[in-house]
Amino acid sequence: MIKIVHYINQFFAGIGGEEKADIKPELREGIVGPGMALKAAVGNEAEIVATVICGDSYFNENLETAIKEILEMVKKYNPDLFIAGPAFNAGRYGVACGTICKEVQDKLGIPAVTGMYIENPGADIFKKDVYILSTANAATGMRQAVPAMAKLALKIVKKEAIGTPAEDGYLPRGIRKNLFREERGSKRAVNMLVAKLKGESFETEYPMPDFDRVAPNQPVLDIAKAKIALVTSGGIVPKHNPHRIESSSASKFGKYDIAGVMDLTEEAYETAHGGYDPVYANLDADRVLPVDVLRDMEKEGVIGELHRYFYTTVGNGTSVANSKKYAAEIAQELIKDGVQAVILTST
């Protein structure tokens, strides 16, 4: 019987949402939450002997301690396989799943598998190190994700041949394999070109890596004269969120006038973000968007000027395409308004 230890976060364990995201790692015998579906998927071949639960914020804010604690827990059960998640598009959860899978593999020599949505930041960081099953962006995809994850994980632990990313549903790891084809390369290339010219679909044999990097701009020469703008993905908005920016998967960004505002008070500002515990930001939004400090610096002449408007959206589950679009629009406005530097804060 293959022994599995399963890793999940506080939410899927049913302990709580963001207000419980700071809980320390906890070990439970047997199955918890999505472990049910996992048990059904592995059938009689494997058994989930224990579940490790950890708060997403705790994991990411205390990386070294959390890893140490969790490795100790996993070691106790000496499993044959470690499965984390699936994390879908939950950013901190995805990073936690990727991190702990890599650690379990490297430090304990136990094969590990996780699952997440391709835009999850954890996917980009860990896809080369860990098998990450490609899932939908929300937990509604659980029913498809878990059996596929289980199937891939069992293949790995039984040392069966793993198919291509497309065949076995995992995110490409950048591994190339030699194989023999019926048709020679020149012929395949011409066929692809013909398909392309006809506007038909074709599949490249060597996808170019997507290195979307932007070179850093020149530094600000005279900060004491510079106009600086604040932008945030932390969802700070005027009280009652007048433009109703969504708590996750934001469909818009907000632009708010802070002329004469010296301090973001509890009475006037709050956060619309649904991906972290809002208590601290609601009490004092300067904890996310440091207007008070920048006003002091403006008075003291440390900076030239704090830009009259701040821009805000909610980063929680918002697609990369939308984030890019919002920021491109924001940047154009900032340039028009003569802003020389931006401080962008994220939670």
């Binding site: 932007v214 701009n217 530094p219 932008v231 984030s323 890019k324 900032l334 802003v339 931006v342 401080i343």
Partner: peptide, 14 residues
């Protein structure tokens, strides 16, 4: 978002 602001030519700190 940081990258798009940088791309537009404004120095940005995250």
């Amino acid at each position: 978002m940081v990258k798009e602001i940088e791309r537009a030519g404004i120095p940005v700190v995250h």
